Every structure is written in C-alpha cells, then in structure tokens.
Computed example of a mutant assay.
Amino acid sequence: MRRLGDLETEIMHRLWQWNRPTTVREVVDDINLRRPVAYTTVTTVISILFHKGYVVRTREGRVWVYSPAASREAYAAALMEDGLEASDDRPAALVKFVENMSDDEVAALREALRTVRQRPER
C-alpha cells in the first residue's frame, strides 16, 4: 500500500473523521475553510481514491456519496506492514521502530500484544 498524497490525505482525514457518507461538495466546502481548492480537483482525487480502493461510493439521487473502504487504523497498519516488508531483517526493523517510540507508544504496543495473545486461535 502506498502512502497517500497531501490532498488524498486531507480527503481521507475528513471521511474517517466524519464517519458517514459524504459528498464531494461537503469535502470541498470544508477544505475551502482553510485553503482554496477547486471542486473539479477534489472530484478527480476522490475518483482516484475510489479506483484505488480507498473509498467506496453509492449513488444518492443524482450525486455520489463516499465513505472510507477501511478504517484509518487499517490504513496505518498496512503502511507499517509495507515498511516491514522493505527490510530483509524484520526483527531488526521492528527493534529500530520500537526504539523510536515514546514510552506511551511502547505501553500501547504492550497492551496490543496482550490483546492479540488473548484472542482465541483462528
């Protein structure tokens, strides 16, 4: 999975945050509160996100509404997995990753490991 571009990230941030089907107009209007962006530009980028599988769309009347295809956490996990795949030595890459974590992040990682270990085997 490749990292999203700047405008793709802005769009996905809104879709994840709002957690409801959203029109291009709503996204454009919200971005325009902070900086100018053309409706056609957002339409093009959200269409690209759809074709790449990052968003799903359904028709409501005459307009498309968009929702994330996966959670922000699933996206972040896929990026981390890609980062690990870039190394020939996954354990060493994990060590480097953990070395850069804050104490709170390490505690969260420990809790995540406990949670995974407690799950029944599939």
Rank of each mutant, 00 (worst) to 15 (best):
E60W: 12
E105P: 08
V24S: 04
R25W: 07
Y75H: 12
I48R: 14
Y75I: 02
T44R: 12
I11A: 06
E85K: 03
R20P: 03
L15I: 13
D103S: 08
Q118W: 02
K96F: 09
A78D: 13
L33C: 15
I46D: 01
I11W: 00
P68E: 02
T41E: 07
A70D: 05
E81P: 03
A69M: 14
P91N: 05
L15T: 00
L84I: 02
S87K: 00
V106P: 03
R57Y: 02
A108K: 13
M1G: 07
R122G: 10
S87T: 05
G61N: 05
L94E: 01
R2F: 07
V37R: 01
V42T: 04
A107P: 04
V98Y: 13
I48N: 03
R122Q: 11
R114G: 09
E111S: 10
A108P: 15
D82I: 00
P36W: 06
L15H: 01
K96S: 09
T22Q: 14
R14F: 04
E105D: 13
L49V: 03
D6S: 09
S71Q: 12
T23R: 12
E60N: 13
A86H: 02
V95K: 13
A78K: 03
R25V: 15
V116D: 13
W64Y: 09
G61L: 06
R3E: 13
S47D: 06
T9Q: 11
T40G: 09
Y66F: 10
A69S: 10
W16H: 11
P120V: 09
R57H: 04
L109A: 15
L94T: 01
G61E: 05
F97A: 02
L7H: 01
R110K: 15
T23Q: 06
D6R: 13
V106K: 09
A92E: 08
D30N: 11
A107H: 13
N19D: 06
E121Y: 15
A108Y: 05
Y66M: 02
A92V: 05
H13W: 10
V28P: 01
D29K: 14
D88H: 07
I46Y: 00
E73P: 02
P68K: 00
Y54A: 04
A112Q: 15
D82V: 00
Y66K: 05
